[in-house]
Simulated scan of single mutants.
Amino acid sequence: MPSKSKALKSLAELKGVQKTLAERREREAAEAAVRAAAEKKRAAEQDLFSRAIGATQPLRRRPAVPLAPEPPAPLPVQKQLDEQRVLRESLSDEFDVTTLLDADDAMSFRRPGIHTDVTRKLRAGEWSIQREIDLHGMRSDEAREALGEFIREAGKLGVRCVRVVHGKGLGSPGRQPVLKAKVQRWLIQKSETLAFVQAKPAEGGAGALVVLLTPSPRR
């Protein structure tokens, strides 16, 4: 009897395994059928789209040309050198200003056509001094270039009235105001200079000039 019971149990287990396998196969078959139906539907939709748009051709691709990055703009070194050279050549130390200066109590200059009221108002301080440069102690070539750059920048900014400090020349050989005379020559040679007068004692006196510049052109 024990052997027969054991055999029946094994047979029941075998049938259970077979049933499980059968169920799995049915489930897999059902899933495969669902996938096949979905694929068939997708293919039908794709075919419908292809028939709707008709024949197509792939777009031609133009050959791409690799572009090198734009090089940085070169530094205008030569232009700067040219400007410095022109500045040195345009301001002469030999320029004779004796006939252009008004020989009054305080040396002054005004361009032809500029009324004497302009120099009078400059002396009286009716023009506000907007910028100042101190050339005192510089070598002649340094002072000339510094003054030229200062005048150019003042013109760009629309500055009308400036003070140029050149010193009284007490430290020069023979205690002669060498730089003072040169600054007067340089300023007269600059087209931007309309007039200048010796500064008031409180503003530098014989060691400085108050300069009126031409108005900058409107843009």
Results as ranks from 00 to 15, higher is better:
M1Y: 13
P2V: 12
K4M: 05
K4D: 05
K4T: 07
S5I: 13
K6M: 05
A7P: 02
S10L: 13
A12C: 02
A12M: 09
L14S: 13
K15V: 00
G16Y: 12
G16I: 07
V17P: 01
T20D: 10
A22Y: 15
E23D: 14
E23I: 09
E23M: 09
R24Q: 15
R25F: 11
E26N: 15
E26C: 11
A29F: 00
A29P: 00
R35Q: 15
A36S: 07
A36Q: 10
A37L: 04
E39K: 03
K40V: 09
K41F: 02
R42Q: 11
R42M: 01
A43G: 00
A43Y: 05
A44L: 12
E45W: 00
F49R: 07
S50R: 11
P58Y: 14
L59M: 09
R60H: 11
R60G: 13
A64F: 12
V65C: 03
A68N: 11
P69Q: 10
P72H: 14
A73F: 08
A73P: 06
P76C: 11
P76H: 05
V77E: 07
Q78V: 14
Q78F: 07
Q80G: 08
D82K: 04
R85Y: 12
R85W: 12
V86K: 14
L87M: 13
L87Q: 03
L87Y: 01
S92E: 12
S92F: 09
V97C: 15
T98V: 04
T98Q: 15
T99Y: 14
D102M: 06
D102F: 03
A103M: 09
A103Y: 12
D104A: 08
S108F: 04
R111F: 00
R111L: 14
P112C: 10
G113K: 00
G113H: 08
I114K: 10
T116I: 00
V118L: 09
V118Q: 06
V118S: 05
R120A: 13
A124K: 15
R131Y: 01
E132A: 11
E132N: 10
M138R: 11
E142S: 10
E142W: 10
R144D: 01
R144W: 09
E145G: 11
E145V: 15
A146Y: 01
L147F: 02
E149A: 15
G158R: 10
V159A: 05
R160S: 15
R160E: 14
C161W: 04
C161G: 08
C161T: 15
C161K: 06
V164N: 02
K168I: 00
K168A: 01
L170D: 13
G171M: 08
S172M: 03
P173F: 02
Q176N: 03
L179S: 07
L179F: 06
K182C: 02
K182R: 13
W186C: 01
W186A: 02
I188V: 05
K190F: 08
S191V: 07
A195S: 12
F196Y: 12
Q198K: 02
A199Q: 12
P201M: 11
A202M: 04
G205Y: 06
G205L: 06
V210D: 00
